[in-house]
Amino acid sequence: MSRHPDLQKFLDRYFMVFLAGYFLSLYAMAGTFSLVWSTYCRDCSREINYPLSLGVLVVTLVTAHAAVVRGRDWGVWMVAALCIGSVVFLLPTYGFRPHMGIFLSIIVVALLALLVLNSKRYRAMRVLLAEYRNKRQVERASKAQRPKVRRSR
């Protein structure tokens, strides 16, 4: 199965930077979630709160990345806010003396995710995705304005 040459060129150039941003933010969120629940929320009720908070975090992160893919600007701002929130929630856990390797790796990965989101290539990808979104909207509008021709039998 062959792909359209423009799509293949786009994927060759931007797919790895998108995956880097996705997996770095995913690792940062997972690590932060784990450390927060093992430090701040050690005595919290886990029957409802734990799966609910995990579900909200996963849905928010997936929605944000899906919005980036669909060409929405607010998606990358949500991902950036989650990464910044990761660092903000993570820093006070230092007082609980978590494993330093895990603690530092999560901070470094969250900061790397922010670096990837701010890279020139990621920004260029977002601009192209927004252009594709605008083209789709124009095509939908032109299809909606065309009169439908009824065929007689």
Rank of each mutant, 00 (worst) to 15 (best):
A130E: 14
M16G: 14
I107G: 07
R146K: 15
N118P: 00
G55H: 02
H65V: 05
M100C: 07
L19A: 11
A80L: 08
T39S: 11
R3E: 08
H65W: 15
A20E: 15
H99Q: 12
N118A: 06
Q8F: 05
M1Y: 14
C44M: 10
Y22F: 15
Y40G: 05
H99V: 08
R150V: 07
L24N: 15
K148F: 04
V127C: 05
Y132Q: 14
L112M: 13
I48Y: 09
K120G: 09
R72T: 03
Y50K: 03
A113H: 02
L7D: 08
S119E: 00
Q8M: 08
G95L: 14
V56T: 07
C83S: 11
R97I: 04
V17G: 01
W37Y: 11
R72P: 04
C44H: 11
Y22C: 11
A67W: 06
S152Y: 10
T60C: 15
L91I: 14
G55K: 01
R72M: 08
P5S: 14
Y40L: 06
S38N: 11
I106F: 05
R126N: 04
G101W: 02
P51L: 12
S38P: 04
L35V: 15
P92M: 10
R70I: 06
E47C: 06
S142L: 14
A141I: 01
R151Y: 11
A110L: 02
L24F: 13
H4C: 13
Y94H: 02
L111G: 05
K135P: 01
S142I: 07
V58I: 15
M125I: 11
S152D: 12
E47R: 07
S86G: 15
L90K: 09
Y40V: 04
S34Y: 10
Y40Q: 07
M125S: 03
R153S: 11
Y94S: 13
G85Y: 05
V59A: 15
